[in-house]
Design a protein around this nucleic acid. Sequence first.
DNA 1: TGGAAACTACGTAAAACTACTTAGGACCCT
DNA 2: AGGGTCCTAAGTAGTTTTACGTAGTTTCCA
Lengths: 211, 211
Amino acid sequence: MIPITIGIADDHLLVIQGIRAMLSKSNFEIVFSTNNGKGLLENLYEIQPDVLLLDIQMPDMNGIDLCREISRNYPDVKIIALTNMDESHYVKQMIRNGAHGYLLKNTDQTTMIEAIEEVMMGNQYLDRQVQQSLMDEVLLGKRRSVQQVMLTKRETEILALIAAEYSNNEIAEQLFISLRTVETHRLNISHKLNAKNLVSLVKEAYKRGLI
Amino acid sequence: MIPITIGIADDHLLVIQGIRAMLSKSNFEIVFSTNNGKGLLENLYEIQPDVLLLDIQMPDMNGIDLCREISRNYPDVKIIALTNMDESHYVKQMIRNGAHGYLLKNTDQTTMIEAIEEVMMGNQYLDRQVQQSLMDEVLLGKRRSVQQVMLTKRETEILALIAAEYSNNEIAEQLFISLRTVETHRLNISHKLNAKNLVSLVKEAYKRGLI
DNA sequence: TGGAAACTACGTAAAACTACTTAGGACCCT
DNA sequence: AGGGTCCTAAGTAGTTTTACGTAGTTTCCA
């Protein structure tokens, strides 16, 4: 039986070892593993595995962009995202950018093997927990994913300034607009993002890379 | 040769597998592994390994407190902290609370084995990168502002709740203390951290892994 | 066992932010 | 030309947070 070839990209050696251990007893062949985005691209250039297990958070490159680039250049490689983040936001992003599967890092052997086999058959595989949070979002109308809410240019600008620790007053000075305007923008942002308070805003800013 | 017994506590199965894989070829016997603090305490009650590899961030318990408790109750167990956080702040905390070693999760096999052997000989073992940042801090007098400032347990707790989007009032309810007390703590935190506003606090919370 | 640190709490006043509404002018797209 | 969105701004009235000071009790540990 021809083995399924696997590539691994994760910045933690321990995790790589863990994956190797999990996959060692089955019909898989790990053809490369790397701990950074650059190395991944180099490896992919040499050899394209059937399945790529891709950590979203690597030091040198953004996993989401990486995913898009890889699925564009090597459309036959099935990408399974591997991450701690179960927010639907990331899931959607990854799927839209060509990932075929989405696993969390606390996954077990059975799940991982199942995921690999599913994507090899051309199906999509999402971690159970991730599926659940997507469902919740749809059914319960939980806050729809962050990125879908579009902030205007001005709003983004103001959110960035808020996150940069400026007060409304300081922002007004800096942008040469009135305090009231800043307040209006801020309120609009809060409503759009369904933010309870300033803390939510800061977290949002993190997610949007404004910090 | 009598094997060195090892206990593992980490919330990611993949990491546990990774450690098992790394240690499998040597004279080590893994006597238990668990993915939460409660399970760890139960396991420890049954059997005390020579070395405990302890993840600082587990869902149900704070690794630093856990470390203190374990080193108090089982002084013969050598604890090696295992984490992503290389900030000197954590390192000091862990060492003060009885850890004998401090490894980062991107460690390799050689390092891990070396660390285990060192602590078994009664020595302290710090990851090279961690050592470096401690050195930098001392030698270059890196900004003490952020990491060196110690928050008390209560303050840390409150900072975490702030970062979890609770208002002062909600925090008061949750901790069964008065609003005024929360305000006092909060003010103290802000002063300690030299924080201009809530945003600084949230950022601090990020740095300290409270989010 | 004595002292330091931590946790608790209140008073008062000012500053900052939130909520909801309305509205004019600018700009873009069809 | 009309409709939509965006940016601007203000009114009015609240709530929440900050600032600074004081101080009693508990906990820890040297």
